[in-house]
Simulated assay, not measured.
Amino acid sequence: MSPFLLTDIEAAVRSSWDAETCTPEYRSRWTPANPARDQCGVTAMVLNDLLGGELIRGEVHVDGRQTDYHWWNRLGRGVEIDLTREQFGPGEIVVGGEVIPRPAKLGRLREEYELLRSRVEEKLRRG
């Protein structure tokens, strides 16, 4: 269990997002006007580090077609936390949600995850 309040963790995460922490192939579309955009995978992993629980992955659909995946967290008793849900526009719908085992080794988003995690940890240490 984390020694930090969820509100403190949320503030640290949200203030740590930028283009360098988002999914690299979508970095060009990241803007401060929508800071949660393409931050879901790394955010879910950092929250999993701090709070435990399960990683959940759903599909993003546009006009009935899958265009991407979306990640969030489920804690005990079925409580779900999704700090990046607001990234989606009106035509983007998240469907489903299955538990995905945490990867033993991060590949594709390792640098972005490590950067976000270090920023969040630093902010939580400083209080």
Score class of each variant (00 low, 15 high):
W71A: 11
V60W: 04
V60M: 07
V46N: 08
M45H: 11
H61Y: 13
E86C: 06
M45I: 07
Q66W: 07
Q39E: 06
G52A: 03
E54H: 12
L75N: 11
L83C: 08
I56G: 03
E54R: 05
D82L: 11
T67A: 06
G58T: 07
R57E: 12
L83Q: 02
E54I: 00
E54F: 04
R85E: 10
C40M: 13
G53Q: 11
W71S: 14
C40L: 05
W72E: 03
L50R: 01
Q66K: 14
G76A: 13
W71R: 09
V42W: 02
N48D: 12
W71F: 15
E59C: 08
F88C: 02
Q87A: 12
D68H: 15
C40I: 04
V79H: 12
E54K: 08
L47N: 07
L51K: 02
I81N: 12
W71P: 10
Y69H: 15
D63G: 15
R65L: 14
G76M: 03
C40T: 03
W71H: 15
V60T: 07
E80T: 03
V62I: 12
E86N: 13
E86H: 07
H70Y: 10
V79M: 15
G76L: 10
R57F: 03
Q39N: 05
Q87N: 08
G89K: 02
L50I: 00
Q39S: 08
T43P: 08
C40D: 14
T43A: 11
R74H: 09
N73C: 13
D82I: 08
N73A: 03
Q66T: 15
N48R: 15
D49S: 00
R77D: 14
M45K: 04
A44N: 09
V79D: 10
D63E: 15
V60P: 01
R85F: 11
L50F: 00
V46M: 03
G89Y: 06
G76D: 13
H70T: 05
Y69Q: 09
N48Y: 13
I56D: 00
G64R: 02
V42P: 00
E80L: 01
R65W: 12
V60Q: 05
L83W: 10
R74S: 14
